Simulated scan of single mutants.
Amino acid sequence: MPRETGSHCDDALRVVDSAALARALPVGEAVEALRAALRAGLDVAATPPRSRVPTSTGQLLLMPAEYGEHAGVKIAGVVPGNPARGLPRISGAYLLMDATTLRPTALLDGEALTLLRTSAVSALAADHLAAPDAGRLVVFGTGPQAFAHAVALHQVRPLSAVQVVGRDPQRVARFAERCEEVGMTASAAAPDAVADADLIACCTSSTAPLFDGRALPAHAAVVAMGSHDPGARELDTRTLTSGTVVVEDAATALREAGDIVIPVQEGALSAASLVPLADVVCGRHPLADGGPRVFKGTGMAWQDLVVAAAAVSGPA
């Protein structure tokens, strides 16, 4: 089957590499594609659950979905040992298909798509949860998702300062340089920087809480995307019980999100209190003041599909 990187011709499988995806769909447009899909009635709860297949070095993830004129599936490999090899922890590919015929129409870089859709979902949530004048971001992590989140959040709230918390001073310095290169003022910080933050983005593979939730300002908005493991968490119980908690889908969060599962098992957080992101975006759940607002994402197949479709042919 003929292939053209980042281009299209009749009866050809369009191959969209990372550079072509960046050209086709800036993160701000990805945010709007996701917002439009939710407001058009996309049923998040109908998304098939992620399939996980253990391998000798990690996991193989399968994430299928259908919406509108498109269907698709992401095949992703998660290998915790890859960063030590100089390789990304997550890699893969996305196959976009016509929903009626299920004929493949495009093959997208799975790593680039995951970076884009994950940061765009977090930015969409932050756009509804953060104070209108939020300008101070604390980001935990120095990897690709952490940087993608800083860029995406800058699209919905022009950031006056980015503070970076990481374990490796050299990586923190390079992260700050990259932020400066795209017009954001950035510096190294410690976890207690959350006390003065408007926005906090948790983008790590940590299995233990990154900061003390007692330090969070009442007006802060927190987004956490680091894991879909029910035994891992980036946020402590205090963070989850001090304000409003928004999730992509309650059933998915209760199955996959350790940040949610653990405090629910402790009896500290009620599953009934979880607010679906679609209800916030569509105005069905007005947000009250009086405590931090938290979004915990796990990543769902509908997000990959909506963003892939928008990149290739406009919104799904």
Rank of each mutant, 00 (worst) to 15 (best):
T118N: 00
A224D: 01
D43S: 11
S119V: 02
E66N: 15
D236M: 08
V164E: 04
P217H: 07
H149F: 09
L287T: 06
A76L: 10
G314A: 08
L13P: 01
D279M: 02
R39M: 11
G243V: 03
S51D: 15
A93M: 03
R174C: 08
A190T: 13
G92W: 00
R89K: 13
A220K: 07
R167V: 09
F140Q: 08
T207S: 06
V261C: 03
V223F: 00
C203H: 02
I260C: 03
W302N: 02
P54E: 07
A84N: 07
A152R: 11
A253N: 04
T244Y: 04
V312G: 02
A146Q: 07
S273L: 09
A208M: 15
D259K: 03
A71D: 06
D127S: 14
D192E: 07
A19L: 12
R23N: 06
R178S: 15
T298C: 05
V172L: 09
A45S: 12
E69M: 14
Q265C: 12
A195W: 11
P26D: 10
S18M: 15
I262H: 08
G28A: 15
A148Q: 05
D259W: 01
V246I: 06
P80K: 15
D229F: 05
E177N: 10
Q303H: 07
V182M: 09
A131K: 10
A288W: 04
Y67M: 14
S270T: 09
T241P: 08
T101G: 08
T47F: 01
L25I: 04
G283H: 03
Q163I: 08
P191M: 12
G297K: 00
D10Q: 11
A251P: 08
R174G: 11
L287S: 12
M184N: 12
A130K: 04
E256M: 01
A301T: 09
